[in-house]
Every structure is written in C-alpha cells, then in structure tokens.
Design a protein around this nucleic acid. Sequence first.
DNA 1: GGCATTACGCTACGACTCGTAGCGAAAGCT
DNA 2: AGCTTTCGCTACGAGTCGTAGCGTAATGCC
Lengths: 238, 238
Amino acid sequence: MPHRNSGHHPPVISLTAAQESPVYGHGMQSRRPASRTGRPRSATADAAILAATREALVELGWSKLTLGDVATRAGVAKTTLYRRWAGKNELVVDAVAELFDELELPDSGSLAADIEGVVLQFAAILARPEAKSGLMAVVAESTREDALRSRVRASIVDRQKRLVVEGRARAQARGELPAEPDPSTAARTVDLIFDMVAGAVVHRTLVSGEPVDEEWVRGFTAVLLRGLAAEAGRTAAG
Amino acid sequence: MPHRNSGHHPPVISLTAAQESPVYGHGMQSRRPASRTGRPRSATADAAILAATREALVELGWSKLTLGDVATRAGVAKTTLYRRWAGKNELVVDAVAELFDELELPDSGSLAADIEGVVLQFAAILARPEAKSGLMAVVAESTREDALRSRVRASIVDRQKRLVVEGRARAQARGELPAEPDPSTAARTVDLIFDMVAGAVVHRTLVSGEPVDEEWVRGFTAVLLRGLAAEAGRTAAG
DNA sequence: GGCATTACGCTACGACTCGTAGCGAAAGCT
DNA sequence: AGCTTTCGCTACGAGTCGTAGCGTAATGCC
C-alpha cells in the first residue's frame, strides 16, 4: 500500500485549497477564493455519487446514463451534482479513475513476472463493465476537449505510466534491460512501452472482446521482452 | 487495388438481399421480405447522410451529435434516417467504417516496410477528428450491445485484421517469420499481433494524444519484429 | 453567542432531443 | 395501368438538460 494519492478521487476542489486553478466550475462562478469559510462539502456525498455513477454505468452504460438518475441513486439532489462536476464527462472520469487505485507494481524479481502481474491486474480492472463502458467513452470525448484530456491524463493515464517507469528502472538495475543515458531517448522508450502494453491490453479487451488470460499474457510478454532486450542505441537505424 | 469489398458501407440492407438476417431494423417491423418491389432507397441519400454524420462528428463530437441535425445537414427528413438506421450507434459505425476503406497492404518487399506502411496509413485515419471522436465512442457502446459489437467487428475490425493475416503470410513466404503449422496456434499469433499493432497505434493516438510519426513507427516496428522473429513453438514455455 | 459564508435539498422552469405516427406524393417494378 | 415501398413533412408525448430561486443546515470568525 505505498504511495497514497494526495487527493485524486475527491472530485474537484479537494478542500485542500492551495490551488486557484480553473479546475473548479463549469465557468459559472468566476472566482474561487480558496474556500475557507462556510459549510464544507460532504465527503460521504462524494463517495456515494461516484459509487452511484459506477452502478449506473453498469446498468445503463454511458449513453443512457443521466445525471438525474445518478443523483437519485446517490440520495443527493441533482443540483448538488452540478455544483461539483461540470458535466457527465468529468463525473465519469472521476468515477472510473477510482477503479485504478488498486493498480500496483509487483516486485517479483524478474521483469517478465512483473509485466505479467501488472498486465493481469490491468486486465482485471478493464474486464469490469463500469470500466468498459466508461473509460473509452471519456477517452473519445477527451479528443475534443483539452480540459477533459488533462483530467483523464492526470487521473488515469499518468498513474499507469508510472508503473512502466518504475518497472523499467528495476529491470535496468537487474541488467534485464539496457540502460539509456540520454533522457530524451529514455522518455521515448517509456512512451513506446506504455503504449504497447496498455494499448494491447485495452484493444484485446474492448475491441477484440477476448479475455486477457494467462496464456495470452505469456505470449504477449514473450514478444515484448524479446523486442526490448537489445533495444539500445538503434533509433537512428535506417 | 485488390479485394474490392462486396458491399460494406452501403449501410444496412444493401439491396443485394441474400440475407434475412436481423440486421435491418430497430425491431419495429418484424419481417424483411427481401425488398423486391416498390420504390428503391436513394443511394445518394446514403452517401449524403454518412458524409453529414462525419461532418457533425467533427464539429460537435459524439455526445452532442443528434440525428435531427444530421438529417438537416444531409438534406433528408429525420424519418428517413430512422428508417435506415436503428440509432446513433449504428449510424456512426457505418460513417466511421467508410474511413477505413482506403486501408491497403503495401507490397514493399520486406516485412518491416510493410508494417511501417500499414501503421502510417492506419495512424493517418485515426488522426482525423471524425475518427477520433466516433470510433472509441462506438467501441465503448459496443461493450454493452452484442448486435453493435458484431457490426463494429464486421465493418471495421475484421477488415483491419485481414491485413495482418495477409502480411504475415507474405512474410512467412519470404522466410522473415517462422511458419506455424498448427492453425489454432497460428490464429492466436495473428490475434496477438493484431492487438499489439492496432492497440499501440490507437493508444498512442487517442489516449496518449501523441502523433504517430515516422520515428515512432520505426521504433515500434523494430521492437515488434525482434519480438516476433523467433516466436515459434514456445507458447508452452514456463 | 451572533454573523457571514457556503453547501444542501427541493421545486420549477424553458429549451431541447428523442423516437414514432400519420399523411400525401414520388418512384420504382410487373 | 396497379402495386409496393420510400420520401418529405408535420406533429406529438416523453424524457433530459442545466439553471434559478428558495429556505435550511453546517461551518469559521469575531
């Protein structure tokens, strides 16, 4: 249970102040004076709303999910929902992001076992219906809205990518992967690995609709590792 | 210009009859007696509707796209739209599927060049805003509806996968990839390659939001090919 | 304690979209 | 001709959206 998040899923303005960002509202109220005085927002309402959102995602899916329905399920007024989230997109991002809290990098001693462990965890999350219907929908919407894209990146994507960074560092320390001294090259390699791993698992689960079982993971890891083994200093090859 | 499609994008019941499938309607009219007599459906209306759908996808995105708006753009009545498509999902699938018509397998003589060519084509399609906003949205919806899933698979996914099958066969003929006599193992390998290639490109483009340029493609292809080179008969390795 | 400030639940509202029904006219086939 | 199906159009009830307004509840500051 390492690295506790410093306030991700508390949805919008996590009472911690220290940010005057435009993250808050829909654009309705202009200023946000750090929220010092007044009645604080109910934290239990947040949890109830996000849980209700996931429940509605399972039962209704993305397109038929309505904020009024979520409010009823959560036992709060619809207006409360609109005070905290700008709309359906932002709400679902936060609701889905909580699913990825359990994602952890195992320390199994070998890079292959690490990858297989992470991939199986990732696949288990993606197999849940609330993740299936919610995740790709917000990704699709985020291609049109920069604010939503940033939110998805901060809440979901970057947390996954960190596992790649850490796992790669461990593997390099063990000598299983070649070191890359140039930080720019290293960043590109991390991006490539991340897109290959996450992309393959997501595509297998959501597009192909096939399960990510141990047999598939073994085959995938074998191909990936063989491809990465001697992957130093050849980006300029032609 | 090989393999001309035998009628994909003509949206629903391509006048070719020869199918009594449940593909047609919303479930409103029960039977479809092969549509022999009567006024035929306007083919130009189909093209106009699908083009209008892509236009609306670019300007409005998935969630704000309405069928009434598409009908107005296409110059047809809203009722005409509902006579041909069951809803927004089916319409967008057909509109997006047409984007992938141009996808072709180059015959460049080496597997690496073939992969790089296909990936760049695929990435160019995904870079278009109508593909970005539409494709992932219908994939998300298809996780809840089997009928929609079949439609996505038939119209989009299987056409992509065929490129993998053909490219792999050519590479095996050249000796660049090991042969796999067992058809079951071969099918699993094709699925793995497909999910790795398509998944990485999709993830890079839509989730990471980074461009698939030649540099990235070279790096990706290098890793993939090295991983596949000696990939015969080791699925049972432990 | 009192006061200012903010969040809450509730109701109500206009605007919009949905999907369908019904009509008369148009465009094919035999 | 006659038959059949599609087309454009209008209209409709149902449902959702996002906001406004109100009175009340819960905090911090003096």
